[in-house]
């Protein structure tokens, strides 16, 4: 195995007195495509925020690229779950994606040719080249999601973190997003939080089931064997049932 990109060691996070994550130990290696599934409130988004350095662990430790989370913005790309913004905000797709270059910007220097090339490349990768000058507020849900992925790609990250990239778009668009992620697979390490438990097993190399604590499943393993999963087409639940719910929220 190659270098671990993310190492969580007995990570615990409490937010507002609620135990969101508990005793979570996890390593993500270079080139991994890790899917994180689990119920709402299971701590998926919180885990991403900890990896990004937006939340601090209460106990345990997190190392990203061998350092503090958030200390290497150049190497990390992030696609938020949904973006609340003003539909009237005067910003084009090109301008939005250019923000992905912020982490690489040298202080006080204007964006250069290299930045523009990275932006064009990212926009082509997500297939929005015809919408380069479209106002962000005029995009459909799926287009916006692609634009946000392009913004993350424009920074040429080694680690891409996605928070439910398909949550707010229709099924046809979802396939497009997954095909896109498939094409990125191997080029960078990807960690994706998702609700599409049935679909993501086809795309990811490993799955983590997160409900305060964590279960890991390696490629092609256990999920297929879960009988209840076949019936409900919801394999994750089935796996979680194998372990009587541990790590209940502490008071």
């Amino acid at each position: 195995m190659s270098e671990p990109v993310i190492v969580c060691d007995r990570l615990a996070v409490r937010l507002g007195g609620i135990q969101v994550l508990n005793g979570l130990t996890l390593s993500v290696f270079q080139g991994d495509f890790l899917g994180i599934v689990g119920p709402n409130g299971g701590g998926k988004t919180t885990l991403l925020r900890v990896i990004l350095g937006l939340e601090r662990p209460t106990e345990g430790s997190v190392r990203v690229f061998g350092g503090e989370p958030g200390s290497q913005p150049k190497r990390t790309g992030y696609v938020p779950q949904r973006l609340f913004f003003d539909r009237d905000f005067p910003l084009t797709v090109g301008g939005l994606v250019l923000m992905g270059r912020l982490s690489r910007r040298r202080f006080f220097l204007p964006y250069g040719e290299e930045d523009r090339q990275a932006v064009d490349e990212a926009i082509r990768t997500v297939g929005l080249q015809n919408l380069h000058d479209r106002q962000v507020g005029a995009l459909s849900g799926g287009e916006l999601q692609r634009a946000l992925i392009a913004r993350a790609l424009a920074g040429e990250p080694e680690l891409l973190l996605l928070d439910e990239p398909t949550a707010s778009i229709d099924p046809a668009m979802k396939t497009g997003v997954y095909d896109l992620l498939d094409s990125l697979r191997g080029r960078m390490t990807i960690v994706m939080v998702s609700h599409d438990t049935g679909v993501i097993t086809k795309h990811v190399t490993r799955i983590a089931c997160l409900n305060c604590t964590l279960d890991m499943h390696e490629e092609g393993s256990s999920l297929k064997r879960a009988p209840i999963g076949d019936i409900y087409d919801y394999p994750v639940d089935a796996i979680l049932h194998n372990h009587p719910q541990s790590g209940e929220s502490e008071p």
């Binding site: 937006l54 150049k74 938020p80 913004f85 910003l91 301008g95 923000m99 912020l102 982490s103």
Partner: peptide, 16 residues
Amino acid sequence: EFLAISFDEEYAEVSG
């Protein structure tokens, strides 16, 4: 930088 924090403060933070 001002554009970034006006449009998406969280992403600005993530960008360092």
